[in-house]
Amino acid sequence: MMSTVMTAIIAVLLIIGAFFALIGTMGILRMPDVFGRMQASTCIATLSTICVNLAGILYVITAGLSAGTAVKLVILAVFVLVTNPISNHALCKAAYRIGCKPAEPFCVDDLAADFGEEAHTHNTADLPDSAFDVSGADASQQAEEGELQ
């Protein structure tokens, strides 16, 4: 009886976790700009990770595995919750500073209003694809000239 209830709880937690991972993935695939994708990806890091690790902890307790395993799952969840905002903040600021355009212009932009020119940087490593595309124009030109054959 006890184990049936526990199995049901674990299954519900796993379904919630997979649902929010699906939400995050759909957001990343369907959102029109970088900033929306970044907001959607937070769902994966928070509720999905928490629910799956909680299910794991419940399973470890019911199955009577060693306590070190449960502690490791807690460490994993806490670690993801502590580090994910840092990487998200660095990513969002970098995308803003190198001038990624939102799909529609921002309705309020206080960072540009307060910092002016310093809010953006011209110093970026994000070159457009044409800068790397050596197989495009040059190769077809050379093929027309017949130097390669």
């Binding site: 796993l14 976790g17 991972a21 995050g24 993935t25 990343i28 970088v34 994708r37 970044m38 990806s41 994966i44 890091a45 999905s48 990770t49 799956v52 690790n53 794991g56 399973y59 470890v60 799952l73 994993l76 993801v80 994910n84 990487s87 998200n88 990513l91 970098a94 995308a95 190198i98 990624c100 490593a125 994000d126």
Partner: peptide, 26 residues
Amino acid sequence: PSAADRLVAADSLDLITSTALVLYAL
């Protein structure tokens, strides 16, 4: 389209891989 998009997806891919590894371990 841009490098930032790829980086967002790669960051989430790391988390998803780690969660899948937890489930496989259990």
